[in-house]
């Protein structure tokens, strides 16, 4: 799947990878690839700018550590990030239901 197709959803996807605990940039990219069975395999270098953007927005918080002699920046969700993730999930479920109904030929909007 191409990165362009993720427009509007990348933030939620990145936040979801941090839901279970702190991760560094490469681990975030790997988690995204693994949870989607390899279908979302973004270039590693483009994951970092998105993480920086989320950090500036206060949705994640970064901290430095040293691992194997290398300086590593690890990110974790903030409270605001958790709320944003919950919102992204709700929004996606609503969006997916609407599009599925439309593409599947089912009735929409639902009428009584």
């Amino acid at each position: 799947m191409r990165a362009e197709a993720l427009k509007g959803h990348l933030d939620g996807l990145l936040l979801a990878t941090l839901e279970d605990g702190p991760q560094h940039g490469y681990a975030v990219k790997e988690a995204l690839r693994d949870t989607t069975g390899g279908r979302l395999d973004l270039p590693t270098g483009t994951v970092y700018p998105a993480l920086h953007r989320l950090e500036r927005a206060g949705l994640i918080k970064g901290s430095w550590s040293v691992v194997g002699g290398r300086r590593r920046r690890t990110y974790e969700l903030t409270e605001q990030g958790r709320r944003s993730l919950a919102g992204a999930r709700d929004h996606w479920q609503e969006f997916a239901a609407v599009i599925s109904a439309a593409l599947g030929g089912g009735p929409w909007p639902a009428t009584n």
């Binding site: 490469y26 681990a27 990219k29 270098g45 290398r70």
Partner: peptide, 14 residues
């Protein structure tokens, strides 16, 4: 520099 340091870690992990 800090950005390159972070990218270096990711690239080397890869």
């Amino acid at each position: 520099d800090p950005v390159v340091e972070e990218l270096a870690d990711g690239l080397l992990a890869s």
